[in-house]
Design a protein around this nucleic acid. Structure first.
Length: 479
RNA sequence: GGCGCUAUCGUCUAACGGUUAGGACGGAGCCCUCUCAAGGCUCAAAUACGGGUUCGAUUCCCGUUAGCGCUACCA
């Protein structure tokens, strides 16, 4: 039975690298009909925030992929302590009564090999150690990494292949803090064992931690799960994505708020560090599940290509536009509605449903509805330059003639695409102007701008009354 | 500093030792066209560097360089 987990720590908002780790886990679980477990790694009480926890659930809920089981490490501390105790009882861990180092640098500047362990503490007798602990002296529990002979710790990573590291390069890492709470290494391994995790799919930043985890699994006589480490997502400057340096562009909710369709975002992220190897890019959820495998994951870090003037990777935007174009009209209209209303437009669902087909291939982000379709929603057009009413190779007189003729036609014609087109084209012939010269003044008059959806459909949706009002207004402006 | 990982167009990537090094995004151009899009076609654009191994290296090995990660009583 495949059981995988995504284990975020609520110490910052959910960023896109974490989201991708979640997605890869989910894809692997679904591909293998296994279980997807969400585990909140909240053992660092000082750094946890409710806001961060909310951000994680906000982002994950928006993705709408779901999970099968949910755990919080803070509710499992007894298990972690018990597991640490078992390691201590086997003599594979020891208490270190040294006060915490003031700075990380302090450790390896204090002498050759000193960072590995403190021999005074490591060699303390069990009786002495028990006595000092019983007396209430604070300590950290450290793993006793084998020191008699250097041995190689090895494992086979599903992505990075055979991995090996000498115990001589692994320090006696902490299992329990002086507060009695477990460290990440302890809590993570204890839970992975207890939750019967079969594959650990996580960021490559954990690749070297894995040697420590192997040590823990072995100390507990447990066969380690399979590991699959993912290349990291980095910023264009090569640095890892961080809120401080790169701002909100790395937060999942930023994509949501800008109008990314969840699946487009998933599609984009799934292509960062993984490839189906058959040049497929726009893929449905089922297709991604079907195609996903560890073999398609590559080993080098992937750049999320945002810039100052373009906060989103152009490929993500393209994928989003592509996804929008493939959405059924009803579904798109429903997704668009909150963006329009949020921008202050009063729009009924049935109106949005009529506008949607006209803007579907003209928007890249859902929020574009507010700039592309605004003129459908307002009673009165915002001010525009009356010079825009004058057609190519034409003048004010031509614009006026066109608009007056258009007004006559629109006052009488049946408001449907076909009628509108034949009558307006005939009007152009009568006035002896080109079709484009006829249509532009009308377009600007009813839309308030030169770039807009196709004219006849637009007129149809706007309706006779609105069209006539706006044309009258344009005529006034020209006079 | 120590240890580990990585290196193909600007970016995401393909090529189980033999290809004119492929696709996509983005860019440029053309076509289509009532504007804007969408769509179609075309072009520019890469194997970090140096050594090996081999008849033949993007591919295997070594080195250099560069980047990243870990080296906390963070995760």
């Amino acid at each position: 039975m495949v059981r995988v987990r995504f284990a975020p720590s609520p110490t910052g908002y959910l960023h896109i690298g974490s989201a991708r780790t979640f997605i890869f886990n989910w894809l692997y679980a679904r591909h293998n009909r296994g279980a997807m477990i969400l585990r909140i790694d909240d053992t660092d009480l000082e750094r946890n925030t409710q806001q961060s926890l909310d951000s994680i659930f906000d982002g994950l809920n928006w993705l709408a992929l779901g999970w099968d089981e949910l755990y919080r490490q803070s509710e499992r501390v007894e298990l972690h302590r018990r597991t640490a105790q078992a390691i201590l009882d086997k003599g594979l861990a020891y208490r270190d009564f040294t006060p915490a180092a003031a700075s990380p640098e302090e450790k390896f500047t204090s002498g050759e090999g000193a960072w590995l362990f403190n021999s005074g503490m490591r060699d303390l007798s069990r009786a002495e150690s028990d006595r000092r602990a019983a007396a209430g002296e604070p300590f950290v529990l450290r793993f006793r990494v084998p020191r008699d002979v250097a041995v190689n710790i090895t494992f086979n990573d599903a992505v990075y292949g055979a991995q090996s590291k000498s115990t001589a390069d692994v320090e006696d890492f902490a299992l329990l803090r002086s507060s009695g709470l477990p460290t990440y290494h302890m809590a993570s391994c204890a839970d992975d064992i207890e939750l019967r995790i079969s594959q650990i799919i996580r960021g490559q930043d954990h690749l070297t931690n894995t040697f420590k985890h192997i040590l823990i699994f072995k100390a507990l006589d447990v066969e380690p799960p399979q590991f699959a480490h993912l290349p990291l997502l980095i910023a264009p400057d090569g640095a890892k994505l961080s809120k401080r340096k790169h701002g909100p562009v790395v937060s999942v909710t930023t994509y949501r708020d800008a109008g990314f369709v969840p699946h487009a975002f998933i599609n984009f992220l799934s292509l960062l560090g993984w490839s189906p190897k058959n040049d497929r890019e726009v893929m449905s959820r089922d297709e991604l599940v079907e195609a996903f495998s560890f073999e398609g994951i590559n080993r080098s870090n992937a750049v999320v290509n945002f810039s100052e003037d373009d906060p989103f990777d152009p490929k993500a935007v393209w994928l989003n536009a592509e996804t929008i174009r493939r959405m059924p009209h009803d579904e798109l209209a429903e997704a668009l509605l909150p963006f329009a209303r949020c921008a202050g437009f009063e729009v009924e669902p049935c109106k949005m449903r009529r506008v949607t087909p006209l803007i579907q291939e003209r928007i890249k982000l859902l929020r574009d509805v507010t700039t592309v379709a605004d003129f459908f929603f307002v009673k009165q057009l915002p001010p525009y330059d009356s010079a825009d009413l004058i057609p190519q190779k034409g003048d004010r007189a031509m614009a006026l003639a066109v608009l007056r003729r258009a007004r006559e036609i629109l006052a009488g014609v049946e408001f449907n695409h076909a009628e509108l087109e034949t009558r307006l084209r005939a009007g152009a012939d009568e006035l002896n102007v080109k079709a484009g010269q006829m249509f532009q003044p009308i377009r600007v008059a009813v839309c308030g701008r030169k770039s807009a959806p196709p004219l006849f459909e637009t007129l149809e949706v706007l309706g006779r009354e609105t069209c006539l009002e706006r044309i009258d207004r344009a005529i006034q402006m020209l006079q």
